[in-house]
Design a protein around this nucleic acid. Structure first.
Lengths: 193, 193
DNA sequence: GTCTATAACGAGATAGAC
DNA sequence: GTCTATCTCGTTATAGAC
């Protein structure tokens, strides 16, 4: 069964944004990749802002699904954090930046609906991490110094930054090393970093 | 005494890249800001790639100067790392992303000379941090678990990521909190984070 | 739902006068 | 060193046939 056109458009546009940024791809790029016309794209997504918003919502939804799967697997907090970092690593292995990390760089040029969706993505990640960090403190597998919220923000920032810098070097191990170090700094044993 | 035109062009373009990204500003934007024509800009910087390269080289040079000043002040490694993070914080307070952090996001779309200059910026930062971390281990003010090189990369990544995420929230304290936590994870006392 | 055709605009860049 | 004028191309977006 064929993937439908909307899915193909979103898949193509998603990759373009993650690799090039929102202001460095065009409807012509998508049309050429899929072998359809720009006019057809505008039928499905009237404006580029519409397309951008759909991209973030789909990405954010899939990210939420991945977090739910981690919870369902039922490991301890350290295992959950490692699985969380692995989501990022998989994106990077495909030579992509996190969609919303890339859009954070483009933030000043984004239409308002896209801005709100980007911030919402980070808020959802932070909320999930706060819960995992709280679990870790309860079970004794993590030991935090500041608030769970501050620690959660540091994790998101650290992983996004590690992706951002690893990409020019085309070196996934650069990301993995920074991610491991970051998460280890929250583990109950094996400090200092 | 007037600043010369080249300086005004670079100052204006630098801000535009740091706020909007390399693909989201134009010669027309600079011309409008300075009250000159696009043709005049092309006299000083024939192509946008020329302008971009000049921006990185000036930025990288000034960054190097700031690092030399930190060394000249002669504090311990913790003080140097705090001063290093403060450079980033000052950029963020002006509502800007690090120039090269922004260009790292744009990396796939950059002309080759700009790519090389961006990587060189990160290499220089990493080299300076490696020296500071080595100093910290010698004087006992820092205690690292992995290599100095890995730790240096984690610091660059962490600070760039914290800037990237803090900007959509327009919240410098978000950066400061992540930066403090990051640097504390290297200090000899006061683990865990 | 996809097409052809085109509008309307902005981009980077150049020629040549002053 | 700055200007006017222009070129060429790519961009988002729309109208209307099929």
């Amino acid at each position: 069964m064929d993937r439908d056109t909307v899915t193909e458009i979103l898949d193509t546009a998603e990759r373009l944004v993650q690799v090039r940024g929102f202001n460095a791809f065009s409807y012509a790029d998508i049309a050429a990749t899929l072998g359809i016309t720009k006019a057809s794209l505008h039928y499905h997504f009237p404006s580029k802002a519409d397309l951008g918003r759909a991209l973030i919502e789909r990405y954010s939804g899939r990210f939420g699904d991945a977090l739910a799967e981690i919870d369902a697997a039922g490991g301890d907090a350290n295992a959950k954090l490692a699985a969380y970092a692995e989501i990022y690593a998989d994106v990077l292995r495909d030579h992509r930046m996190c969609l919303c990390g890339m859009l954070a760089a483009d933030y000043d040029t984004l239409p308002d609906p896209m801005r709100a969706a980007v911030v919402s993505f980070f808020d959802r990640n932070e909320a999930w991490l706060v819960a995992v960090l709280a679990q870790g403190e309860r079970e004794g597998s993590l030991r935090l110094q500041g608030s769970e919220r501050d620690a959660a923000q540091a994790i998101v920032s650290g992983l996004e930054g590690a992706m951002l810098i690893a990409r020019p070097y085309e070196d996934v191990s650069r990301f993995e090393s920074a991610a491991t170090r970051l998460l280890r700094s929250f583990a109950a044993q094996s400090n200092p970093v």
